[in-house]
């Protein structure tokens, strides 16, 4: 049920994001979700893509430092309090969130959230028990 995320180290230089997204685009890699964490000097670009293995190889061959990480994707109702109720489940079980980012899809009923937590399997278990929908690779592929 885990989803592969690609993290890429980039320097804060103008044009870097454009270069990397162009590289992915030209090679048929579709970006489903992304987030950037940055300082004044560098940033980490985190990507959920249509074909993560190919994307990882692509950026590494391009000479970038990149790493694949397993994260959890969940689908939550796109209504006020939707995210809060999912996060409350994790909180009750003392599962800390390292980072997260959300995205909406064409279907407006649900929003998708990518979560990085300390213990993926425990988090999936408690979320599923609480009725939160966990996204699979196939779910993402059909987006």
């Amino acid at each position: 049920m885990l989803i592969k995320q690609i993290s890429i180290f980039i320097e804060n230089k103008s044009g870097r994001l454009a270069d990397i997204t162009k590289l992915l685009g030209e090679n048929g890699v579709n970006i489903l979700a992304l987030s950037i964490a940055d300082t004044t000097d560098f940033g980490i670009l985190r990507l959920i893509v249509s074909n993560p293995d190919a994307a990882e190889q692509l950026v590494k061959d391009y000479g970038l430092t990149a790493k694949a990480t397993e994260v959890i994707g969940i689908s939550i109702p796109h209504v006020p309090g939707g995210l809060a109720s999912a996060l409350a489940v994790l909180n009750e079980h003392n599962i800390g969130i390292e980072y997260m980012y959300a995205f909406v899809t064409r279907s407006a009923d649900n929003a998708m959230v990518i979560l990085k937590v300390g213990d993926n399997y425990e988090a999936i278990k408690v979320l599923a028990q609480a009725g939160v929908k966990i996204l699979s690779k196939d779910d993402l592929a059909s987006l």
């Binding site: 993290s7 890429i8 180290f9 964490a37 300082t39 560098f42 980490i44 430092t65 990149a66 790493k67 990480t69 390292e98 980072y99 990085k116």
Partner: peptide, 15 residues
Amino acid sequence: ELEDSSLLDSFSRLE
């Protein structure tokens, strides 16, 4: 130059 990717997923470790 950051050479290996093992720290990459965690911002705090890079910092």
